[in-house]
Design a protein around this nucleic acid. Structure first.
Length: 527
RNA sequence: GCCCCUGUAGCUCAGUGGAUAGAGCAUCGGUUUCCUAAACCGGAGGUCGUAAGUUCGAAUCUUACCAGGGGUACCA
């Protein structure tokens, strides 16, 4: 619908003034101003030296389109009312299972990397937020015609995993009755004890390898429970073994203008105005960024058109070096989109819950799910836009679970499901698009217009890479439906209106179901 | 010091260039012999952190400042 209007406005402007513009097509603040409005006249005012109102009037007189009821110029805006038939035609399609799907993604191949936590302990809530986000964004992009793969990068080489091995080894000694001094940065927590006991039982000698394997198993289990899947798990150590990290350094050194400087026995990467960053330590080992560059190169080499990284704010400082290196190596950095998912602060009421993996005090995904459930957790994470640091109040998520936004939307779905079931028992047809033109009430028109907004919201969410837009839309749609349901008696109301109203309800249920499944939230038939 | 995020109703947050700035919670009042009251309707509640600038138009963009949070390793 929005695309059609956009086309009409552009064509009319071209016919009238011979100019190409990109007008915005939005919804006016109140219904009596029409269904859509455009700022086209404002954009043209300066170029052709006429007042926006005059231009809008010219466009309004000239504009043509099979779905336009009327077009008016109102204080400079071009306002357009859509024919009722057009809304009804749109409504008929809203009952299909692929409603809202689009193909402007053009089968572009997208690789989205997320979570990628250190394999040194259970996943905590910040990972849960990133997991919800990455999963939902993948689904939304898929719905718009992108071909999406999801990847988890395992940081299984480096000092942190050696420390994990060491922590297990020391814990074993302690369990055997030896007195041991744990280094201050050793990993603690129940899972270390569990791993140590298991290592003893299985006669393990390589504690690091064992620890990483076991921790990954734990992480996969938690993600599974959270309904998050990945197409690929890429291991840092494997990339290193294949010599990919070496190749990055070699190729960067071969450049005409080497970006490296030796200082204090370490190899520093200097690019742009920023201070340098160490790539090779004085002991000859690579810092984290080198295999990470190799990894990104590997992503590009596999032929992806767009790379999306969802990172925690602690990675911000590495982005310039990563991008600069890839650029120097000849890769299209503009196709790499790095999105920072801000931290989550856990609270219980007023009390902040401090988290530190090393000290062993943290809330894991499993504990979170035990307390608030998958659906509530996912919806609450996804409601915030990614740049927003969020407070997650466990007390509130639990206590107010009845008034939790996710239940409001799910309740809408359950309510309609039960209505439709009741209707079928009474032998009413719930999916016949006949007599829809009998729908005339305000609440019914509002719902019809709201339904078609689904397509617009999905497109916007995919373009902006922000699933929270969908969360707010679904809340809105549910609100409109609850309002309609309360005011209009369907079964038992006017006989000729029952079937069209059931169809309308069915369409709403379909949109709610598809929206919720894009968020990874379940759609209960009853509650 | 430098970098990043944030500042919108009492609270939690939407709104990122358009018209009279919205929702939930909290609060006050109302709605159930009838398809799910986990619902609905109404009231009250705003110097959009401050100031300047850009613009026909700014909560939205720019700059400076103020306030809160986070980062600032040859950890990742």
């Amino acid at each position: 619908m929005r695309h059609k209007i956009d086309g009409f406005v552009k064509r009319t402007v071209k016919d009238l003034f011979g100019m190409e513009i990109s007008p915005e097509i939005t919804h006016p603040p109140s219904d009596d101003l029409g269904d859509y409005s455009s700022n086209a006249a404002f954009l043209l005012a300066k170029k052709i030296h006429k007042s926006p109102q005059d231009i809008a009037e010219m466009i309004a007189r000239k504009i043509e389109g099979d779905i336009i009821e009327w077009a008016k110029a109102i204080s400079g805006f071009l306002n357009i009312k859509i024919k009722k038939d057009a809304w009804l035609e749109e409504l008929k399609t809203a009952i299909y299972r692929d409603y809202g799907n689009a193909c402007w993604g053009n089968d572009m191949r997208v690789l989205i990397e997320f979570v990628s936590a250190n394999p040194t302990g259970p996943l905590h809530v910040a990972s849960a937020r990133a997991a919800s986000f990455g999963d939902s964004l993948s689904r939304i992009l898929q719905s718009q015609g992108f071909e999406v793969d999801r990847e988890y990068y395992i940081d299984d080489s480096g000092k942190q995993v050696e420390l994990l091995g060491k922590s297990i080894e020391l814990k074993i000694k302690e369990l055997k009755g030896e007195k041991v001094d744990f280094p201050p940065d050793a990993y603690k927590g129940d899972y270390i004890i569990k791993l140590a006991k298991k290592a003893i039982k299985e006669n393990i000698c390589d504690y690091t390898k064992f620890g990483v394997k076991e921790v990954l198993k734990m992480q996969k289990g938690a993600l599974d429970r959270f309904r998050i899947t990945f197409s690929e798990w890429i291991s840092e150590s494997e990339l290193k073994e294949k010599g990919e990290a070496d190749r990055v350094i070699e190729d960067l050194q071969e450049l005409k203008k080497s970006p490296f400087v030796k200082k204090d026995g370490a190899l520093w990467f200097i690019a742009g105005k920023r201070e340098g960053r160490v790539f090779i330590r004085s002991d000859g080992s690579y810092t984290y960024i080198v295999p990470d560059i190799a990894y990104h190169r590997y992503k590009f080499d596999r032929g992806y058109d767009v790379l999306i990284d969802l990172l925690g704010p602690d990675h911000i400082d590495h982005i310039p070096e990563l991008e600069k290196s890839l650029e120097l190596l000849g890769y299209p950095v503009e196709n790499l989109l790095v999105k920072i998912i801000q931290w989550v602060t856990l609270k219980r009421g007023e009390e902040k819950i401090k988290m530190s993996k090393r000290s062993g005090e943290f809330i894991t995904i499993d504990e979170l799910l035990d307390e608030v459930g998958v659906d509530a957790a996912r919806y609450l994470f996804l409601m915030r836009k990614s740049s927003m640091p969020m407070d997650f109040d466990l007390e509130l998520a639990k206590e107010q679970s009845e008034r939790n936004p996710v239940y409001y939307v799910q309740y809408g779905h359950a309510r309609i499901s039960s209505l439709l079931e009741f209707a079928r028992e009474k032998n009413y047809i719930t999916d016949s698009p006949e007599k829809l033109n009998l729908l005339r009430k305000d609440e019914e028109w509002k719902l019809m217009r709201k339904i078609t907004e689904f397509k617009e919201v999905l497109e916007d969410a995919a373009k902006m890479k922000e699933p929270h837009l969908l969360c707010y839309y679904l809340l809105d749609l549910s609100k409109f439906y609850h309002n309609f349901y309360q005011k209009v008696r369907i079964i038992g109301g006017k006989e000729e209106l029952i079937q069209p109203r059931l169809f309308l309800s069915n369409a709403i249920r379909n949109v709610l179901a598809m929206g919720l499944s894009l968020l990874g939230v379940s759609t209960p038939e009853r509650m």
